[in-house]
């Protein structure tokens, strides 16, 4: 194999890996404040992309994306307020089934609103065939958009959690919910905020990636499983490790096309998920002791 092909696969892997990382961060934000896994996380990505495509018919691209992100955030808040806020200490099994139900509902609503066809936003700069050449590697400008927007998003999230009042409150909730409440933090509002945040970043990811991968009403489930794989790979709750894990999975998947037909691409990533769950459920970068204390 030649070096150009190698780099080409690498770039594809990084693109997909970035998206997986963003979905995984969405999982982590909600998991940290509530201790639950939101199985509807992939649907936020789908919803964001679909809404942006519809709005793009009336609005310029940046405005359409911004409104789509805001709408998805509102949907996230509404879901939390309607289904989750008023449950007193629900069991894990119950929360799993409820969020699965929500994901089915969102998917079916999308099917009836947008139909079963694939949709995509136009390329942000240039067209589907334009490319930037670095040496012998040709990169679509959209790939740079995906990587760029995602990096900015991760940096902003980091700043948000470190330096702002609500960000610190959310971190307090994830460390110890009862103690946070005793300090006067409204933990329920923090849970809503975590749903809003992860819906927002999911929607933005859906918008930037849609020109490359296209979106369909049922695209959320596969994304959710991969995002979860990445979240586990990095250690559940650890958003920075999720970025590294996302890139690893994306690149692995992209190179797996060499050894197996494309149809089995998903099988690779899910096998990795199962393997990690069996062998090292605390993740590559997580500590075993900490994992034992968490409520699964």
């Amino acid at each position: 194999m030649n070096i150009e092909l190698f780099l080409q696969y690498l770039v594809a892997g990084v693109t997909y890996g970035t998206i997986y990382a963003i979905v995984a961060i969405g999982f982590n934000i909600i998991y940290n404040t509530t201790g639950i896994i939101n199985f509807a996380q992939g649907e936020f990505v789908m919803l964001g992309g679909m809404t942006a495509v519809t709005l793009h018919a009336f609005l310029p691209l940046p405005a359409a994306i911004l409104s789509a992100v805001i709408i998805t955030m509102i949907v996230g808040a509404m879901i939390e307020i309607t289904f989750i806020r008023w449950l007193a200490s629900p069991s894990v099994l119950r929360m799993i089934i409820i969020t699965i139900g929500i994901s089915i509902l969102l998917r079916e609503i999308a099917l009836h609103v947008w139909g079963a066809g694939v949709k995509a936003l136009p390329y942000f700069t240039g067209t589907a065939v334009s490319s930037i050449s670095i040496g012998d590697v040709h990169i679509s400008p959209q790939v740079l958009w995906v990587v760029g927007v995602s990096s900015v998003m991760v940096i902003c999230l980091n700043l948000f959690f470190s330096y702002t009042q609500p960000g610190r409150k959310m971190r307090a909730c994830s460390t110890n919910r009862t103690a946070a409440r005793l300090c006067g933090i409204n933990t329920k509002n923090m849970v809503t905020l975590s749903f809003v945040l992860s819906a927002g970043i999911g929607a933005l990811a859906g918008c930037v990636v849609s020109p490359i991968t296209y979106i369909q009403y049922d695209g959320g489930t596969a994304l959710a499983i991969k995002g979860f794989t990445v979240a586990i790979l990095g250690g559940l709750g650890n958003s920075m490790a999720a970025v590294a894990a996302g890139l690893i999975l994306g690149i692995l998947e992209s190179f797996s096309i060499w050894v197996m037909p494309t149809a089995f691409k998903d099988v690779i990533s899910i096998s990795i998920l199962l393997l990690i769950l069996f062998v090292r459920p605390s993740g590559l970068f997580g500590s075993k002791e900490a994992a034992q204390l968490k409520e699964f």
Partner: peptide, 26 residues
């Protein structure tokens, strides 16, 4: 799989189901 609990069990069984689906589809 059954050594796992909660979210991990749910995701692992979901993963198994997806693998079977993708294999028969592919």
């Amino acid at each position: 799989v059954l050594k796992l609990k909660g979210h991990y069990l749910a995701m692992a069984t979901l993963g198994f189901g997806t693998i079977v689906y993708k294999v028969v589809l592919g």
